[in-house]
Design a protein around this nucleic acid. Structure first.
Lengths: 347, 347
DNA sequence: TTGTACGCGTTATCAA
DNA sequence: TTGATAACGCGTACAA
C-alpha cells in the first residue's frame, strides 16, 4: 500500500500537491507537476486508504443496509426471492452512486444499532422493522434513514418509508375473484402485522363492498417454521374445502399450496382458484401459471436507495413513497365450479 | 459520537487507561478506576470509531465478497437463488465470527480489484471468476482468497477453491436415466466453461460407459438474455423431439423447459423425462416434482467463509475443498415411452 | 504555486 | 498503575 507521503517523497514534492492532483484540483497545480504526479500515480496504481480518508473527513461513503429477520420464517433471509431482489437493486444503485454497501442481517435490533454507529455510515436502509423498531433506531442514529415496507404512522415523523399499495393490491384481486363468481374466498398469510395486515384489509374491503360476510375463520394462518409447515399446509387444505378461492399473501405460499393440492388430487383452477402476491419466478414458471398481484421489487430497491442518496446530499424528499401494484391475470383463477366440500359428497 | 479522549477528559484520566478498560486489559488498571470507567462507558454508550481503529491497526475486520456477473444472464445477479442463498450463508458465518461483510457485484474485474485494495479488506471471497480472473486478482492482492466454484488448476497455486463434484453429479443422474431405459438423452446448458463444462463431462462419461454415442448436436445451448430466451426455448423444444430425456444444468432451466413443454401439450415425464441440478425451491414446488442433483449451497457458503477465516487466522487449510452431490429422485424422470418425434407421426 | 503543520480517533510504546 | 506521546494516512487551513 503506497501512501501519499511516499509519493511526495519519491517525487520530492509536498503531500499537498500530490493530494491536489489526486482530487483534480488542477487549478492549484502547475500543469508540469500535475503531469509528473499523474504519471507516477498511474504507475504505482495508487489507491487511497479509505480508513484514513474517512477519519479525516468524518464520513464513510458507506450505506448500511440492515435487515431484521423474523425468527420463525427463514434460517437464511436471502432465500426469500423478494429480499434478494431488493438487495440486488439497492446494491446496484448504491454502487453506481459511488457509495459502498455494508449488509447486515440480524434478528436483534440492538445489534443492528450498534453496528450502524461503529461504522458511522452515511445513511441507512432498513427492512423488516416491526412495531417501533424504526423509531428506536432513529432515536440513536441522527443521519438519514429510509425504511422499506414499514407501516408506522408515527415512524414517518422520523424516517422516510418506501412502500407499496398493498391494500389496493389484494382489493383489486379479490374484486376480480368476485367478478368471476366467487363468494367463498379465504385469505392466507402467516401473521397479521404490517404488510400482511394491509393486504388483509384490501381483501376485507373487496368483500364488504360486494356484501359478502367474512369472519376470523376465513383468515388462514400458515406456520412457516420448517418443522411444522407440512402439517400446517395440510390443515389449510382441509379447511379449504369450504371455499372456492384463496387469496394468498405471497407467490410462495400460493405455490406451496398448489403443490399440496396437486398431491391430494385437487385441481387448480378447476376445483379451487388461487391467487398470489409479488409476481416472482415461482409463479411465473408454475403451471397453470399463477394469477397474481404484481409489484416491482427492483423499483422498490432503487427508489429506496435513490431517496436515501438524495437525503444524504441534503435534498428534500417526500417522507412516504407508495408504489403501485397491478393485476397479472394468468391461469389459476377461473369461474368457480363448486365448493370442495360438495365435491367430497359426490366422490 | 463520543470519543475516548472526551471520556478521558470528563473523568480526568488518560486515554490509555480508558482504552485499556475498553479492551478488558484489566490487569493494567486498578479495580476502582476500572469500575468508574466501565460505568461511564455504559452510561454514554460508547462505540468505537472503526475507521480510527482500522487505521491504527492496519486491519479492517472486513471480508470482501465480490461477485462477477455475466453480462448475458442477469440484470440483477441476486435474482439467482443459488447466488442469494450462498451470500446469505456467507454473511451469517462472517458475522458470527465478528467480521463485517462488504458486498460488491460487478461485471468488471478491474473495478473489483480497485475496491478491494482501497478498503484493505482482511480477506476475499470470489465468485464468478472465469479464465484467469482469480489469478489476476491474487497477483494484486496479497491476503487470503477463497474462490467458489472456480475451475482453474493453475489458480489453486494462488488461492483456495470451494467447489462441488459437478462431474459426478450429472454422471450419476444420467446413469440413472440410462438405467430407466433412456438412450436418447440431451444436455442443456448456456455455456461450456467451468461448472457447466464439468457437468457436461459427467454426462459424457455416463453415456460413454453405457456405450451410447453422443455428438455436438446433443448439447443444447440456451440463450438466457431476456430478449431471446423465449425463442431459444422454443428452438430447444423443437430439437427435443428426437430425445426421451434432457439433463439440465440447473433447476431453473429444467423448470423453464417444463413450462414450455406444458404450454405445447407435451407431458413430463410421460412424453419426455427431465432432470435438474441444484435442488432449490423451484423444483421442489414444481409438479410433477423435479428429479434433480442436490447440492448444499448453504454448506458451500459456510465452508468458503470458515476456510477464509481460518486462513486469516494463520491456520493451514486444504487449497481445494470439493463438496459432494446426491441424487434426488422425484417425479420427472420415468421410463421412456417413445420419442416425441414418433408421437408426432401418430397425432 | 507550493509546502508546513495539524486534526481526525484509536492503539501502542515507553516513561514515570 | 498511570500518563504522555507517537504513530496510522489523509485532507486542508494557512503560511510562504
Amino acid at each position: 500500500m503506497i501512501t501519499i507521503k511516499e509519493i511526495a517523497q519519491a517525487l520530492n514534492m509536498s503531500t499537498t500537491t500530490v493530494s491536489n492532483v489526486i482530487h483534480g484540483k488542477t487549478g492549484e497545480v502547475s500543469e508540469e507537476k500535475r503531469q509528473i504526479i499523474q504519471d507516477y500515480l498511474d504507475k504505482v496504481e495508487y489507491v487511497p486508504n479509505i480508513n484514513a480518508r474517512n477519519l479525516a473527513q468524518n464520513e464513510s461513503k458507506i450505506i448500511g443496509v440492515a435487515l431484521k429477520a423474523r425468527a420463525d420464517k427463514y434460517d437464511n433471509l436471502l432465500k426469500d426471492p423478494f429480499v434478494s431482489e431488493l438487495i440486488g437493486a439497492i446494491e446496484q444503485t448504491i454502487k453506481n452512486a459511488g457509495y459502498y454497501m455494508m449488509l447486515y442481517i440480524s434478528r436483534d435490533i440492538e445489534k443492528i444499532m450498534r453496528r450502524v454507529s461503529t461504522w458511522n455510515v452515511d445513511g441507512l436502509i432498513l427492512f423488516g422493522m416491526i412495531g417501533d423498531d424504526g423509531i428506536r433506531v432513529s432515536k440513536k442514529y441522527k443521519k438519514p434513514i429510509v425504511c422499506v415496507d414499514t407501516y408506522s404512522i408515527e415512524g414517518l415523523k422520523h424516517f422516510t418509508n418506501v412502500g407499496l399499495d398493498d391494500e389496493n393490491g389484494t382489493y383489486e384481486m379479490v374484486k376480480h375473484m368476485i367478478s368471476q363468481g366467487h363468494k367463498k374466498i379465504a385469505f392466507l398469510s402467516d401473521n397479521s402485522n404490517g404488510v400482511d395486515f394491509a393486504r388483509l384489509s384490501g381483501y376485507k374491503r373487496a368483500l364488504k363492498e360486494a356484501g359478502i360476510k367474512y369472519s376470523e375463520k376465513d383468515f388462514f394462518k400458515l406456520r412457516p417454521r420448517a418443522e411444522e409447515v407440512k402439517e400446517s399446509i395440510d390443515e389449510i387444505c382441509e379447511r379449504a374445502r369450504d371455499y372456492t378461492a384463496i387469496m394468498c399473501v405471497s407467490d410462495l405460499y400460493a405455490v406451496m399450496l398448489m403443490a399440496a393440492f396437486y398431491d391430494k388430487g385437487i385441481r387448480v383452477p378447476e376445483d379451487i382458484s388461487i391467487a398470489g402476491f409479488d409476481d416472482n419466478q415461482l409463479g411465473f414458471y408454475h403451471r397453470p401459471a399463477l394469477t397474481t398481484v404484481h409489484q416491482d421489487v427492483t423499483l422498490k430497491g432503487v427508489t429506496a436507495a435513490t431517496t436515501l442518496l438524495k437525503q444524504i446530499n441534503g435534498e428534500e424528499t417526500d417522507n412516504e413513497i407508495i408504489l403501485p401494484t397491478s393485476l397479472i391475470i394468468r391461469d389459476t383463477v377461473s369461474i368457480p365450479r363448486k365448493k370442495l366440500s360438495d365435491l367430497a359428497h359426490t366422490s
